[in-house]
Design a protein around this nucleic acid. Structure first.
Length: 169
DNA sequence: CCCTGATTCGC
DNA sequence: GCGAATCAGG
């Protein structure tokens, strides 16, 4: 797989939202977390608030002497942070699989249809006819799709409105 | 052990 | 430019 514009854009977005490299990798599909990290660095948006450790020398991979002048740029974070946080605040959430409290019919799941790869975000009153699970594709080991994972694991505050609308509990 | 990102370097 | 292998750490 290659890095077309869409994939790069999605990478930037997810990275900016704080998803891990492996999660982004599985979400993009057909790619490893190493690829994601590599791309992230090449794009220059690495180092999310991390104290740059003491430049690790690293031994030769094969046997090459590799004469390096012991001098590297090494981002110290903020460049990328600014880029990631500045632009999108919460405008159009893209063609998100789940918008607000509505989940496409074809995607909805009953308890029977749930698998490891389907979002288990409950919608509606359990036991009632209208109840269903989101059914979107899950992120990495998580039980939710990206949309609902963000709701479930809200790092900061102020998101209660969304949770209510989504029909949690 | 599971995971995280960071770095190097053969391709 | 890409990403596996590796490193360093949580």
């Amino acid at each position: 797989m290659s890095w077309n514009d869409e994939r790069v854009e999605l990478l930037k977005r997810l990275w900016g939202e704080g998803l891990s490299a492996s999660q982004i990798a599985t979400e993009l599909g057909g790619i490893t977390r190493n690829a994601v990290i590599g791309k992230v660095h090449r794009l220059g948006l690495s180092g999310r608030v991390k104290a740059a450790g003491p430049a690790r020398p690293r031994k030769a991979q094969t046997e090459a002497p590799a004469p390096r002048p012991a001098s590297r740029p090494a981002f110290s974070g903020n460049t990328a942070l600014a880029q990631a946080l500045e632009p999108v605040v919460e405008q159009a959430p893209r063609p998100a699989p789940v918008a607000g409290n509505v989940v496409p019919m074809g995607q909805r799941c009953t308890i029977m249809n749930l698998t490891e790869a389907t979002c288990r975000w409950p919608v509606g009153e359990p036991g009632t006819e209208s109840f269903y699970f989101c059914g979107g594709r899950t992120v990495s080991g998580l039980p939710y799709c990206t949309h609902h994972a963000r709701m479930a694991y809200q790092p900061s505050q102020d998101r209660r409105r969304d949770r209510r609308l989504a029909g949690i509990r």
